[in-house]
Simulated scan of single mutants.
Amino acid sequence: MTAGGHARFCPGEEHGEIVFLTGSGLSARTGLGTFRGPDGLWAMEPETEQAMHAELLPGSLPMLWSVWGRMARIALDHGPTPGHRAIARLGAPVITQNIDGLHQAAGSEVVAELHGSALQAVCLGPECRWRATVVPGAGSRAEDHGVPAACPDCGEPTRPDVVLFDENLPADALELAVRLARRADLFVAVGTSGVVFPAAQLAPTAKAHGATTVLIDIDPPPDPALRAIFDHIIAEDAHEVLPDWERTLNQVGRSSFLDPF
């Protein structure tokens, strides 16, 4: 049932272009948790939130490597959730606010990472294009996560490739996200509060271009203005809803061994 007490919405053959917007709620089952709210990372570890301000670089690098390296390690150790796997099996493009790489690990091919990736390292030098894949470990140094502390190309410090407060979102990812939202005929937000801009503009953009909009969140926001953006609100666990959708659309039977978590 949906939040309004009606039969749960499910996509049909008329929805040829499904686009997902995902947030930390989709990955919470891995142990990564969410960021906002009374039980979120920012509230539980306020020093971590403070380290996320770009103006504190490079002094905040030890905290950044510690936090994001741990996040990447948890994601790699756990692997994709049933929700990630269902989205991948649907073959739908994804816009994500997550930095854990779990959509790609599940097999999704088109992923716009609005907030970067904890599985990548980049150079702190604004003109340098060096990047490398992180091998997440435990510790507060770049070397603890498989990358050099100094850029091999220019000597500047290296950092996790995640977007900090006061930094712009990656232009290519944002451009792709807007393009996907405009062409969607079904736009589905999963596990995201929908209040952080510019991601908060994507569902309204899709709706303005004729898409049906759906929110799947076990605890949907009460704000009427936010709820009005969505044609359907499903107040249920995405890890149950999305596999059900996938089985219906792909006409396959229940196969629990595919969803080990």
Rank of each mutant, 00 (worst) to 15 (best):
R159M: 03
D39K: 14
A211D: 07
A173N: 07
E14M: 10
I218C: 02
G155F: 02
C154N: 01
S27I: 05
T30S: 14
A75E: 09
D244Y: 00
V111M: 11
T248W: 02
A88N: 05
D244L: 04
F20H: 09
A199M: 13
V188R: 09
G210D: 10
V134W: 09
A28Y: 05
C128E: 02
R36E: 13
E47W: 11
P204T: 12
R89A: 11
V214K: 05
V214L: 12
P148W: 04
M52K: 06
H239Y: 01
P148S: 00
A54H: 14
S66R: 15
G191V: 07
L124R: 10
H53D: 14
C151I: 02
G116V: 04
E45R: 15
V252N: 01
P243Y: 05
P38T: 12
D223R: 10
P58I: 14
A92P: 12
R179I: 01
L26A: 01
V110C: 12
D161C: 00
H78T: 09
G139P: 09
P221A: 12
A181R: 12
R85M: 11
A235R: 05
G101Y: 10
A86R: 09
T48K: 09
P126H: 02
A3F: 08
A88D: 06
A228Y: 08
D217H: 15
P221V: 10
R141P: 00
T48H: 05
V190A: 05
A173T: 04
A150S: 12
G25F: 12
T158A: 00
R85W: 01
R183D: 03
E14Y: 01
E156Q: 07
S255F: 03
M44Q: 15
S27R: 08
I74A: 03
P148G: 00
C154I: 02
F230M: 04
E240R: 15
V190K: 09
A225N: 06
G31P: 05
A88Y: 07
A138T: 14
I216E: 01
F261M: 13
P136Y: 11
N168F: 14
G31V: 07
V162S: 02
A28D: 02
G101N: 15
P260R: 13
E127N: 05
H232V: 06
E175K: 15
L242W: 06
L32P: 00
A225Y: 05
R141V: 00
P221L: 14
V135C: 03
V195W: 03
A142G: 08
R227C: 00
E49W: 08
V241L: 06
D185W: 03
R8K: 11
A189D: 12
E14P: 00
T192D: 02
